[in-house]
């Protein structure tokens, strides 16, 4: 194996990594913003309000991300209405097609994570809000959302890492993200082992950064829970 190609093409790989990073950050932020109202609708007491996010989540969790990307990228352009609409400048860009597919996908997963977190808050804490006469809005703002944020962190960090790895699928629609860039380099140098190893290593580094970041936020956010490690009693 000849790792000099890695050194030579390393700046190009970093360019690709930067594209991957943008894809993940943008879709995670947008997905998070959409996820909150979806999650709140999902636990609505009104049946038809619950039904809409249920169908949305059902579709985006039940179909492959790759299919969703193709639907947006190849599917949308079939329709003349779309091509003539003001959204075409966005929809003709593979980058934005990927962002749209990723955002829709991650918002469905994230909404489920949020929903679980809100429902995991002990009923007694909610009753404590009721008996001081809080309104629904005050309840969410002061207790439910801050509490849910603490509960959600481990699962949400996991979702971001899944998104990072899922972002490699963007390479299938001509985007030169880290995976796309690696494949382009390999087409020129015929060194799949070296370049894919290097790309994998870069993904790993980004994952470690995300994990460390979430670990810190978690420690800070959940400091009120006291010790985070479960102590196993010693024998005897």
């Amino acid at each position: 194996m000849d790792f000099s190609v890695v050194v030579e093409y390393f700046p190009r790989l970093l360019e690709g990594a930067w594209v991957s990073f943008q894809l993940v950050i943008l879709s995670v932020v947008l997905g998070g913003v959409f996820a909150l109202p979806i999650a709140l609708a999902r636990i609505s007491p009104i049946a038809w309000v619950r039904a809409i996010p249920f169908a949305y989540i059902f579709f985006f969790r039940g179909t492959p991300l790759l299919v969703q990307i193709f639907l947006v990228y190849y599917g949308a352009s079939q329709f003349e209405v779309v091509r003539e609409s003001i959204f075409w400048p966005i929809l003709e860009e593979p980058f934005w097609c990927a962002i749209i597919a990723f955002t829709l996908n991650t918002s469905a997963y994230t909404a489920e994570i949020f929903r679980g977190a809100i429902q995991a808050i002990p009923q007694g804490e909610v009753e404590a809000c009721k008996v001081v006469g809080m309104s629904k809005v005050q309840m969410y703002r002061r207790v439910l959302l801050p509490r849910a944020f603490g509960i959600v962190l481990p699962a949400y960090g996991n979702e971001i890492i899944l998104m990072l790895k899922g972002s490699a699928l963007a390479s299938t629609i001509t985007i030169l993200d880290l995976t796309g860039m690696a494949r382009t380099i390999i087409a020129r140098t015929y060194t799949p082992m070296e370049i894919f190893l290097a790309a994998g290593a870069i993904y790993l580094v980004i994952s470690i950064v995300i994990i460390a970041l979430f670990r810190q936020i978690e420690l800070r956010q959940n400091r009120y829970l006291g010790t985070l490690s479960i102590k196993v009693p010693e024998k005897g």
Partner: peptide, 30 residues
Amino acid sequence: RQQIGFVFQSFNLWPHMTILQNVMEGPLNV
């Protein structure tokens, strides 16, 4: 409800707030 206090068997303090914040929450924000 604002004029009828309720003390629970299982206390139900809000765990993400300090003791002082728990006591201040109602009068301050409600």
